[in-house]
């Protein structure tokens, strides 16, 4: 009986020490990991949208909660005025899961600056063609005020042939952002202009 007690004691001690160490290290590195994720996952998309090096853009970040989802929002506030946003959304219904898109928005002209793909699991050579410049160029200059749709659903966007699911997921992500802006544009701008350190977004991509 003493033996079993010892087994349990030793194992639990090792477990507790290990969990403690990991929790401590994770807490210490959390901010750094999130920054690295932003820099390497979102950074390239952001810097293409705003034509600026990513490290300058990442500090202006906030996480906006709406409809049970959390949207990472990056903003540009040149001259004190928040005039451009980049909002990330997970477009549902892709062939291999969510297609995470980053939509650039010009608030003054009320148009879309463009769309960038942050991450996707679409099939290489088929669905992955959503990454192509020629396909994504269709987003540039679209009006910010009305939902977009594929031509097959009565809209103006041409889907990639053979990759309807992937194209549809991009449209879904875009419309999430457009709806978010329709309902909460003022709040977001206020949060961004307030300059207070916004609540940090949860990790993960």
């Amino acid at each position: 009986m003493r033996d079993i007690g010892r087994l349990v004691l030793v194992l639990s001690l090792i477990g507790v020490i290990s969990a403690g160490t990991l929790a401590y290290v994770r807490a210490a590195l959390d901010a750094r990991i999130e920054h690295q994720e932003d820099l390497h996952v979102r950074g390239p998309a952001l810097s293409r949208l705003f034509a600026r090096p990513a490290p300058d853009l990442l500090a202006n970040k906030l996480a906006f909660r709406a409809g049970g989802r959390e949207y990472p929002v990056f903003y540009l506030d040149d001259g004190g005025q928040v005039d451009r946003l980049a909002v990330e959304a997970a477009g549902r219904g892709g062939y291999g899961g969510d297609v995470v898109v980053m939509i650039g928005l010009d608030l003054a002209r009320r148009t879309l600056i463009g769309v960038e793909i942050v991450s996707h699991h679409e099939t290489p050579g088929v669905g992955a063609r959503i990454e192509r410049e020629s396909f994504r160029a269709q987003w540039t200059g679209l009006a910010l005020d009305e939902p977009v749709a594929l031509r097959s659903a009565g809209g103006d966007l041409d889907a990639i042939s053979g990759a309807t699911f992937s194209s549809r997921a991009m449209v879904d992500g875009t419309n999430q952002v457009i709806e978010l802006l329709r309902d909460h544009a003022d709040e977001i701008v206020e949060l961004a202009a307030g300059g207070e350190r916004p609540a940090r977004a949860k990790g993960g991509s």
């Binding site: 290990s18 990991l22 949860k202």
Partner: peptide, 9 residues
């Protein structure tokens, strides 16, 4: 529980 980092363990 937001413990995804313990996945491996």
């Amino acid at each position: 529980l937001d413990l995804e980092y313990l996945q491996t363990l």
